[in-house]
């Protein structure tokens, strides 16, 4: 409790309006430079799949995310971590424009997908979502058969191959085939939570996206199901770029190549504190707020 109050006081300087004293201003500048200064060392890895530049996000008048700049590289798993309300899910959902579905929201800045800003006027969000798949926090299969869950996305996107093959391959890649191969016509809602979530992953990879966004995919599951999902993510990164939001620090440590740590400032707006290789961020954080969070002193 105490450490939390301390840190939030420390970060009060993050708001430039606070008091207006020189001291506060200096601290604010230090804080904001430290947030962006953590970026440049990301030079290794594959080609950049998605780059977020100066992203600000608003729910109506509420400034939910402030000045986020990040890069995601091909065939890597990037974890977004941070305390509740720090905007990590919001950032994730700007990448495939899922936030468009919420009325009154606005995104400023750029989200470059293969070099093209997904928020440009000539970009169709349907195409973006088809190429950037998403797995949600709560397993949300369609109330249809397992088979139809896999084939629906393929069908609407003009899949020309064999559907039985697609269903088998997708379920195998999601490590679900053996459990459901005898009941493909059964309603997906009768599966367990963990199976449902793997079905959602199978459904997503069936349309062969380039990137898969995962919004706390294991937070509603028991430890065994969670570990299955984690194993799956590890295998999927061979083919896909994965961006995952998680509350579970150990999970981020286990499965991700890169980690981005978000915090929330005193105006309840989320910002990026530091990001880089997971190993470095966990064992040698540059920012003391990261260290405090990772070592469990707050958040």
């Amino acid at each position: 409790m105490d450490s939390k109050t301390d840190t939030s006081e420390e970060f009060a300087g993050d708001s430039t309006e606070a008091g207006g004293s020189q001291d506060a201003l200096k601290r604010a500048m230090a804080a904001s430079t430290s947030a962006t200064a953590a970026a440049p060392e990301d030079t290794d890895g594959g080609p950049v799949a998605v780059e977020i530049a100066d992203l600000n996000f608003f729910y109506g008048d509420f400034h939910a995310v402030t000045d986020v700049s990040l890069r995601f590289r091909t065939n890597e798993v990037t974890a977004l971590i941070g305390p509740s309300g720090c905007g990590k899910s919001t950032v994730l959902r700007t990448i495939n424009r899922m936030n468009d579905l919420i009325p009154g929201t606005r995104a400023d800045g750029r989200v470059l997908f293969n070099g093209k800003n997904v928020y440009d006027d000539d970009v169709d969000p349907v195409e973006i979502r088809r190429r950037i798949g998403m797995v949600f926090q709560k397993p949300n299969p369609f109330p249809k058969s397992i088979y139809d869950n896999i084939t629906w996305g393929a069908r609407i996107n003009g899949y020309k191959g064999d559907y039985d093959e697609l269903v088998e391959n997708s379920l195998r890649r999601a490590a679900l085939w053996d459990e459901v191969k005898d009941k493909l016509r059964q309603n997906a809602l009768r599966l367990s939570g963990g199976q449902q979530q793997r079905l959602c992953i199978a459904r997503t990879i069936a349309v062969e996206p380039e990137i898969i966004l995962m919004d706390e995919p294991a937070s509603a599951l028991d430890p065994i199901s969670t570990s299955k999902i984690e194993d799956l993510i590890f295998e999927l990164k061979e083919r896909f770029t994965i961006i995952i939001v998680t509350h579970n620090m150990q999970q981020a440590g286990r499965i991700s190549d890169k980690t981005a740590f978000f915090m929330v400032n005193d105006k309840r707006s989320g910002y990026l504190v530091e990001w880089g290789k997971t190993r470095e961020l966990f064992f040698n954080p540059k920012d003391e707020r990261t260290e405090a969070y990772i070592s469990g002193r707050f958040g």
Binding site: M98, R130, G133, M134, F136, G153, I156, T204
Partner: peptide, 21 residues
């Protein structure tokens, strides 16, 4: 539930497909 709509949009469904299907 909104989650059903999201799962449809998440696979590249259009608004009409989401509503109709």
């Amino acid at each position: 539930p909104q989650s059903l709509r999201e799962s449809s949009y998440g696979l590249g469904g259009t608004k009409w497909q989401t509503i109709w299907h």
